[in-house]
């Protein structure tokens, strides 16, 4: 049963990174789009994301609920020591969610739209940045349960180069996912499509650079990242397939195959998450004193885990078909509309 719960946790994180990521990424792309093109980008991304928007961030909630029900010690350790980045991320979520609703449902269209858009794009940047920082801090070995000063307990637990570069890497991945996604959405508008291709290139470059910085900062912060990634066959395979598939990805873009493109980009993100979590498994929080919090040692009692696994399984029976139908029907209708 515990493995079912762990798989759900991992899948929820992956789907949040993919679907939520595309969602954040649309805002990030808008942030880096020139003034005159912003409106068009906004329209296309709204058409694509609007219907599934509410559902996207549910993955985060599922992950949190799994953590606090199944692995309370992990949830509370992170809540205490990463309080500040969590609060910033929450403020980002509030700002983004409400700005999205306001800009799409405000009955009057006036200058306030500019304010909503500003809030939306900046919070689209900040939220994944801090999500990345939180994820990076969990494994950075900087969380010190015995810290006795405010700075070491609540600030340096997350404010370090490693966590920050992971944050930036997350931002570029989100931008990349969104660009790939939007290439497909814009397939009936050649100019627009080319613009998203350019964005995808830029975001890809940003991801490669920030990914490189992650390694550099890991070395300077004394984190054995190289060993984690390249020290085992799964890591090596995942990283190299992800890299090789980049070539296919560019070929597909060139060919204009938007469906396979999306699948491939999804595959790459999956590989990245696999590499970064595989070596740690089952330890998802690494502490300063060399200790760690393991998913297999901090679980709730058997009865709780059993109930949680059942709830998740039953939930999927309802959710997955409905969600797939939602995505499918709006993809199809979207295509019909564009014709």
């Amino acid at each position: 049963m515990i493995y079912i719960v762990i798989i759900y946790l991992w899948v929820a994180l992956l789907l949040y990174l993919l679907l939520g990521g595309a969602d954040f990424g649309a805002g990030i792309i808008e942030l880096f789009t020139t003034e005159d093109n912003k409106a068009k980008t906004r329209r296309i991304s709204y058409q694509a994301i609007g219907p599934i928007w509410e559902a996207n961030h549910m993955w985060l909630i599922i992950a949190i609920v799994i953590l606090f029900v199944g692995f309370p010690a992990i949830y509370t350790t992170m809540s205490v020591h990463l309080h500040i980045p969590l609060v910033v991320m929450l403020l980002g979520i509030i700002a983004r969610g409400t700005a999205f609703a306001f800009r799409n449902y405000d009955a009057v269209t006036d200058n306030l739209q500019k304010v909503y858009n500003k809030i939306f794009v900046y919070s689209s940047f900040i939220t994944p940045l801090f999500l990345g920082i939180i994820a990076g801090s969990a494994v950075s070995g900087k969380i010190d349960p015995h810290a006795d000063t405010f700075l070491s307990a609540y600030i340096f637990s997350w404010l370090n180069w490693f966590s920050v570069t992971i944050g930036l890497f997350t931002v570029s991945l989100c931008g990349f996912i969104a660009a790939i996604f939007l290439i497909g959405e814009a397939k009936y508008d050649e100019l627009e499509r080319r613009r998203f291709v350019r964005k995808a290139v830029q975001m890809n470059i940003a991801a490669v650079i920030s990914g490189g910085l992650v390694f550099v900062s890991a070395i300077s912060d004394g984190i054995p990242l190289v060993q984690w990634v390249f020290g085992n066959p799964v890591g090596i395979t995942a990283v190299s397939t992800a890299t090789i598939s980049l070539i296919i990805l560019w070929y597909l873009i060139y060919k204009g195959r938007s469906k396979s493109l999306r699948l491939l980009a999804g595959f790459q993100i999956t590989m990245i998450l696999l590499t970064t979590t595989y070596k740690h498994y089952p330890n998802i929080v690494i502490l300063k004193n060399g200790g760690y919090l393991s998913l297999l040692e901090n679980q709730g009692t058997d009865k709780t885990i059993e109930a949680l696994a059942l709830a998740l399984l039953i939930g999927s029976v309802f959710i997955l078909p409905a969600l797939i139908y939602l995505i499918y029907s709006f993809q199809k209708k979207g295509a019909e509309h564009a014709h």
Binding site: E54, A55, F68, G70, P72, T301, L312, G315, F318, L323
Partner: peptide, 25 residues
């Protein structure tokens, strides 16, 4: 939450499904 999470978490884990259905609908 450390102590209560595993005990009173059941409704929250079911609620996840209800929210999801709500958001999809």
């Amino acid at each position: 939450m450390k102590h209560a999470g595993p005990i009173f978490g059941m409704p929250f884990s079911l609620e996840g499904t209800a929210f999801f259905i709500e958001a999809i609908a």
